[in-house]
Amino acid sequence: MLQFVSTRFLRALVTLFIIVTFAFIVLRLAGDPAERFFDPATPQEVVDAFRHEWGLDQPIWVQFYRYIIAVLHGDLGNSMRENRPAMETVLARLPATLWIMVPTLFLKTIIGVAAGMTAALYRNSTFDRLIMSASVFGFTVPAFVLALVLALIFAVQLRWLPSGGYATPYHMILPIATLSIAGAATVARYTRSSMVEVLGRPFVRTAAAKGVRSKQVVTRHVLPNAAIPIVTVFGFMLGNVVGGAVVVESVFSWPGIGRLLVSSVQSRDLAVVQVILLLIGVMMVFSNLFIDLLYGLIDPRMRGGKTQAA
């Protein structure tokens, strides 16, 4: 178990390192900051002084080393627009994003798992077909279309809910609904297929043949085994929610990190973009680590055995 935890931890660190390196490469590819910062008429001495001050005249690996030190200190430069550390700008927006992300994750998991389980237990029933057709729409309808359609119906036509803003709990409903509907569809699909697979395995049929009550079969034998793929989907869905949040926050004028990201790209506030990239990276890596460890708890086979790529 110790070895399992430590290898997972190591993998998470390697992934983090790759993400940081990626950010550094993209930053450098974007061009020499000195050239971006000064207009061509600036005297060469000034440019050179700037370069020296920021270490741009150092070899690339020294720059990389300094970059990593800076990342570790959370020192990632200032936001151009707000003229304060980019980290502060981003952290100020974090609560708004969490307000829609956390309920979404709960909702779509509960709805998705419940719908998927019901569909699997009553396979080929009308309910099953309904869930499966709905789930296809769930991942072919883009978040922005769903968001706009929901806004059109509930805000523009029915006028039940506000179409955007960040004032009352009512404002949360449409963004959360948009993200949950798409997510729940995918969760339902995965839950159903992993349940169906487990239900067909010999030990489940044996349990049923021995006369174990069907409710017990499901809770004792099927669920623990079906939980593994479901947990995987959860990690995968987290990434989808993060991606979807960018779109949904923009549509509903929700002042979260996603909207900040879009507006920072448009105004080329690169420090902020970089902080968001790294922040999401850290978040994803640690939630994946958590899910990996959860695996180890659910499935004893995972602890010692070789790991597959995802």
């Binding site: 990626f22 993209v26 990434g239 989808n240 993060v242 991606g243 990201l261 999401i280 990276g281 994946n288």
Partner: peptide
């Protein structure tokens, strides 16, 4: 797999 592609693309 760990990073949402949307975020990478935007960055």
């Amino acid at each position: 797999l760990a990073m949402p592609f949307m975020i990478i693309a935007i960055a």
